[in-house]
Amino acid sequence: MREPEWRRTGKMPDYRFSLANERTFLAWIRTALALLAGAVAIDQLAPQFAPGAGRVVLCVALAGVGASLAILSYRRWARREEAMRHGRELPHSSMLLGMTVVVSLAALVFAVLILLRP
C-alpha cells in the first residue's frame, strides 16, 4: 500500500490541523467499534431482548453501520486533508446527519422493544 497520489499535491497543512483531523478519524473509529460492541452484546448476551429474527436483523444492521462508519471515517479523513492541502473549504459531510438518524432510530427501536417485552 503506497501513499495515495493526493498526498503529494498541495502543501502540508499546519500540524495542529492534521492532528485534529487524525483525532476526528479515531473518534469515528471508536464510534464504529462501539456500535460493533453493542451489536455483539445484544446478539450474544441478551437473548431475551427481542424475538429471534428481529434481534438478528437489528444486530446485523448495527454491525453493518459500524463497518460503513469505518470506511467512511477514512474517506472523510482523506477528503479533509486533501482540502486542507489545497486551502479549500472543508467538504460537507452527511455523516453527522446520518449518525444522528441512526442513533435516534436505534434508541426508538430499543425503547419499543423494552416496553413491549413480556
Partner: peptide, 24 residues
C-alpha cells in the same frame, strides 16, 4: 508532530471493517 501516514489509518480502518464482517 508529523502528520499520520495515510496507509496507517487505512490499515486501521480495514481492520475494523474485517472485524465487522466477521461479527456479521
Amino acid at each position: 508532530t508529523a502528520a499520520p501516514p495515510a496507509r496507517l489509518l487505512r490499515i486501521a480502518a480495514i481492520a475494523v471493517v474485517a472485524l465487522s464482517a466477521a461479527a456479521i
